[in-house]
Write a protein that binds this DNA or RNA. Structure first.
Lengths: 218, 218
DNA sequence: TAGATTGTTAATCGATTAACAATC
DNA sequence: TAGATTGTTAATCGATTAACAATC
């Protein structure tokens, strides 16, 4: 439910893996807080919620943290992802190599015209007619939508119907899971680049003026 | 300062433009709330902060809203953006046509090896040596970073030094604006796809168990 | 021991919502 | 007028932080 909390968890996990690789054996709430940009108190609170305990004097044991966070966040099982829509953005994701360090694995792409896809990767690209069978047979839970605006909603329905539980959506529509009682059954994360850019422009434009002052004065 | 508030503003703006196109003349806090997924009370509160007032019986006038939101959010001036790093993601953005409806305009790409870039667009691609001059001469305020991990930080410094005030970062590093007293002078928005995917996996894995129950019980 | 750090409680802060008087 | 909707205040809610006792 609490997005910020979950986001912090993934940050903790990454950081702790890095520290382990650097040879650290223990770490303090202080260090962790600095690194992910929160107060030490919040780190301790988070850890307390997760029942991760440290030593009053010696901080938290890195090996313990690595183990616990791997358990909490699904560990190092390969997490398989499909990409639907193999245009520029779709193929860019398929080609991206950085995922492997996070145990994310793009296992297939799907496109309306698979034969037209410029695909320099080893990831196979299938037609849309194969989509649902593939999801079912391989028990895929998470997919990326990178199809044009107009198709996004239909594609989402297909994916959810076949069993997809989480979607990262790059189409510039605020997708909502309409079909079925989907609220509970499919998480959607929208990545809207135009929105982010507009947001930046706005932040910049109000930065100097100081929006609070400007806006709350009568 | 308040991210959610600003994000709502851009959503209002888009929605209102759509309603105007549909021929609406007025709209109620109720409708707006439904459409962007917030309570009507919050819509009224937001509008009140912005000094947008409606009629006790007749809701808010669409023409007024269009005008005001355009003014507040920088209106329909073309907003020029550059893309630094013309790999897969960079070129995908350059090729993306959906920006024009938001008056976003990608005016140039930059790459270490501009001659190697596969560029099917009309957007010119220059070498990195031209970056700072271009930013200064064209008074560019917002840029996208789509370079590899290791270069991101250096590229950011170059951009900020030349006058960039907002950055959308696709490199999988949590960029912070280190140089100068940059806290105040450059907004950074990180888009970390791997993080979003992991986040989805985690949400799914805890959905059934009900994380709150699982986690807060002693 | 003295000093440092955890774990937890209570205080704070800020955003959202409920409620309702004002009024069209 | 009666009904509906705004605008605003006060209440609520939840997350973060400060503070400090416990203790290594």
């Amino acid at each position: 439910m609490n997005k910020d909390f979950i986001l912090r968890l993934t940050k903790y996990k990454r950081l702790i893996h890095k520290l382990k690789a650097l040879g650290f054996e223990k770490v303090f709430s202080n260090n962790l807080g600095d690194a992910i940009g929160v107060t030490p108190a919040l780190v301790r609170k988070d850890f307390s919620i997760l029942h991760l305990s440290g030593n009053k004097r010696g901080g938290y044991n890195i090996d313990m943290l690595v183990e616990e966070f791997d358990r909490i966040l699904g560990g190092s099982e390969q997490q398989n992802v499909i990409v639907v829509g193999c245009g520029r953005i779709g193929t860019a994701l398929m080609e991206y190599t950085g995922f492997s360090t996070d145990d994310l694995n793009i296992v297939a792409g799907f496109d309306q015209f698979p034969e037209k896809v410029n695909n320099p990767t080893k990831v196979p690209v299938y037609g849309m007619d194969k989509l649902q069978d593939f999801i079912r047979e391989n028990n895929i839970k998470v997919g990326v939508i990178a199809v044009p605006d107009a198709e996004a909603s239909r594609v989402l329905d297909m994916m959810v119907e076949a069993g997809i539980r989480g979607v990262l959506n790059f189409a510039p529509v605020e997708l909502k899971c309409s079909k079925y009682q989907c609220e509970t059954s499919c998480e959607i994360q929208n990545v809207n680049i135009a929105l982010e850019l507009e947001h930046l422009f706005y932040q910049i434009s109000t930065q100097d003026i100081n929006i609070d002052r400007d806006v709350t004065n009568e």
